[in-house]
Nucleic acid binder design. Sequence first.
DNA 1: TATTCTATCGAACGTCCGTTCGAAATAGGA
DNA 2: TCCTATTTCGAACGGACGTTCGATAGAATA
Lengths: 215, 215
Amino acid sequence: MPKTSAVMPAPGRRLARASTQKKLDELLMKAASLVARKGFEATSMRDLAKAIDASLAGLYHYFSSKEDLLFQLQYRTFGSLLEQQQAVAAEPGTPEERFARLITGHLQFYARHRNELKACTFELESLTGKPYETVEAIRRRYYRLMTSVVADVIGGPSSNGKETRKSRHATLFIFGMLNWIFMWYEPSRHGTVEQIGQEMRELVLDGLRRGKRSG
Amino acid sequence: MPKTSAVMPAPGRRLARASTQKKLDELLMKAASLVARKGFEATSMRDLAKAIDASLAGLYHYFSSKEDLLFQLQYRTFGSLLEQQQAVAAEPGTPEERFARLITGHLQFYARHRNELKACTFELESLTGKPYETVEAIRRRYYRLMTSVVADVIGGPSSNGKETRKSRHATLFIFGMLNWIFMWYEPSRHGTVEQIGQEMRELVLDGLRRGKRSG
DNA sequence: TATTCTATCGAACGTCCGTTCGAAATAGGA
DNA sequence: TCCTATTTCGAACGGACGTTCGATAGAATA
């Protein structure tokens, strides 16, 4: 069962040959692995070249700079996650059901693309300028998506995803739970991500609904 | 109102003059500020020397290496936090009250030593070998302290802080909420940390007590 | 004041970094 | 097959890095 990379068309740039596109995917996957293990700053282009068994100069055919490498990695990964979660949130169901699907979806994406997602989650500030703004915009859209569903759980479907202080803060707390998982989760010790997701929901669901108005 | 540094005797090492101890505190505080802003890898000894308006070589009178600097910073900060929280948890009260005091205490420590705590929370893996083990041991004691109080909230005081899968996982989730605050909290936008702490408790308290056995 | 320990510093060392350049190899279309 | 665009590479550049060393300045003790 080969691990698939987080796919999404890169912005701008085009690679001519299909085999090159394939190699780019491999490059980004290996880069994600190194960045996840040692951090972006501590990962050198020489490390990556060695890991991929290619030359140092050759990398610059795929990336205009080291920062561009991180940008492409984050853009593709975060873009895929947002796309998936938008589809998940769009399917019908009660607020609680949609909330459950978002939590599960996030954790499943984590399980499938751990390294890539870690690079998105903990290395966002390694980008600057326009690349940062671009990725940050995706991140913000994702937060808003989650907040709207959390708001529906708090206020019922009739609240139509309208943000409140409570829903915004609760969402930040929930993302804290979701993202901190990088620091401790091991499948053999903690069970499946689906189980973890259920435990997270059981921890916060009553708190979200506390004082809920009917309708 | 001068910001105080997180105080705790450094392990081993002794500085002769009191003024030197004072300078060490200043050094660690400035280092925490730089590490919090740019990350440990991206912070150079030259950066620190410039920020403190001293010479590069002079730094090595206080630290045997760059890693030793990070170790001292983490050891002192995490040690202070653990000490404070042990005192807070030892005071009498219902499990809910002790839990509330721990959350508030953590967030107040965050508010007072943001940079230092960030260096502890996000740069632990920048240490290796024995320094890593030493700091990791403190971290683990802190987690256990929190877990025991969470277990009491779940099972009542009669459970005597006995860990369960639920209490361990809930504690990991809660630390996720607490630590993720570095990524978003601004006093002017989100209110005081005491308010944030109360919102966190309201989010999880019912979930913790769900299915609680009396006694 | 003479002596000893503490604290600070300029200069340098060897290493690794991101990036560039021009040439060599390779593949696809004519 | 030849031609052209794509992909790969060795070698090198300039700069930043952590660390060391020997010398100097300063404070404390006598």
